[in-house]
Amino acid sequence: MQKFSVNKSGFYGEFGGAYIPEILHGCVAELQDSYLEILESESFKKDFARLLQDYAGRPSPLYLSGYLSGKHGCKIYLKREDLNHTGAHKINNTIGQILIARRLGKTRIIAETGAGQHGVATATVCALMQMKCVVYMGRTDVERQAVNVKKMKMLGATVVPVTSGNRTLKDATNEAIRDWCCNPADTHYIIGSTVGPHPYPDMVARLQSVISEEIRKQLMEKENRAAPDYLFACVGGGSNAAGTIYHFLDDDDVKIVLAEAGGKGVDSGETAATIHAGSVGIIHGCKTLVMQTEDGQITEPYSISAGLDYPGIGPIHAHLAATKRAQVIAINDDEALQAAFELTRFDGIIPALESAHALAALNKVAFKPSDVVVLTLSGRGDKDLDTYFNYEPTLQQI
């Protein structure tokens, strides 16, 4: 991990760091000084492992897809994060962070959410630990993810619709940071992606690394090898991708393919393909690739997928792209929808729209018959059913 891990200043190569208002310096410094000690303590490891197993339902299965393997002429396994409690990988991170928050003496939790899965996962662990929870969500996302909003409220969370900007994930994050600035003493901000000021990108990646840890063990059981030839994951902020690749980063024989949201096309002006369309800038406390104008104003992103509709990227993924360690493919809306409907029809699995981008990226790579591929199915498609129903005529083309 030396080559691709974060340094003491919180940077992955040129990306990362902590660019924060003075009022948050104490909160962030407290996290920086304590997170590794907490994560490496035996009491945390014991509590985290117990809840991942008995509450979240881990390990998640590694499923050999007969349909995808036949279509692409190699072995394609799906890492079934969609089968976790709350329906996505997000629960891994929220369990870990609320355990950290308790150890830091925090009594109130805030979060941002786009697709709603992180919001639901945060509300879930707050109910479990009986802690106050406030979730910020762009009004556009509130409307297209209405079921998840109702789940959060049922779990006891206060959901705050954000009406500024494009009313999506970026704007929800802005409001969550404003809240944190006003309540630094008692509040912990559970960031849902590998974004934000150091130590969040590293902390979230470590908590999600249970995914790659399990992949290694499961491949040994199924293929008598610890590493695949390819890893595929969708990437917006990048937490499921970071978790998928964490234990394989220094293995150059493992090819990493990341699928970002092309929207209506990388050059259309309606895209969330940050690695393709972005440039170096600062967003939400870290230096990374950002979709912005020449004078540094954030460009509004677009994706059919609420969870990928973000104008930045985790600094670890910006570094992997810059160093060519990862191949990044932009997948447009129609390609993602087609991939989602195909997996549903031929494998009996309705994937989240985010995961559908990774599935579509399989069509862009030529595999050898001997290749073993692992693709992380980051979430299930319950939250996206209204979107899928609107595009149901696509089914007739399959």
Rank of each mutant, 00 (worst) to 15 (best):
G263K: 09
L31N: 03
K368W: 02
S239G: 00
V254I: 02
I23A: 13
A261M: 14
M129C: 01
P59Y: 07
G116P: 01
L258Y: 12
I215D: 01
G26H: 11
Y302T: 00
S378W: 07
R102Q: 11
H284E: 13
A360S: 05
R206L: 09
C182K: 13
T376V: 11
L39K: 12
N148A: 03
A242T: 05
L377S: 06
E213W: 14
R325K: 05
K324V: 05
A18V: 04
S212R: 06
I215M: 00
L308M: 11
D250Q: 01
L231R: 12
K75C: 07
N224H: 12
H319Y: 14
E37H: 00
S65L: 03
P161C: 13
E221S: 05
I256E: 10
I109V: 04
K368T: 03
S43A: 14
Y136P: 00
N224R: 14
C286K: 01
A111C: 05
K255E: 13
A172E: 04
D333S: 08
G192L: 06
A242S: 10
G379T: 13
L128G: 04
D382I: 14
E342R: 06
A340F: 07
V290P: 00
C74Q: 15
L343C: 03
K383R: 04
L395D: 10
G238Q: 06
I76T: 02
A272S: 12
S69G: 07
K287T: 11
S164F: 06
A330C: 11
P301D: 15
V160Y: 06
E14K: 10
V290L: 09
S378A: 15
Y77W: 12
A226E: 03
Q218H: 01
A115G: 10
Q397I: 14
E342S: 02
N7M: 12
Y67L: 02
I91C: 11
G87T: 03
V135L: 13
P59V: 04
E40L: 04
I331C: 02
I256D: 05
V125C: 15
D171F: 01
S239D: 01
G285Q: 05
T163S: 15
L289T: 12
I38T: 05
E223A: 15
E294M: 14
S164M: 08
Q145D: 12
G236N: 05
T323N: 03
R102D: 08
L377Y: 04
Y19G: 00
G307T: 05
A205H: 09
V149Y: 02
P393S: 09
S209V: 07
Q130W: 00
P351Q: 12
T344V: 07
S370G: 10
S193V: 13
D186A: 10
I23L: 09
S9L: 14
A306R: 04
G114L: 09
I298Q: 13
D253Y: 15
L24H: 15
I398N: 09
Q297A: 15
K324W: 11
N363P: 11
Q397R: 12
V6I: 15
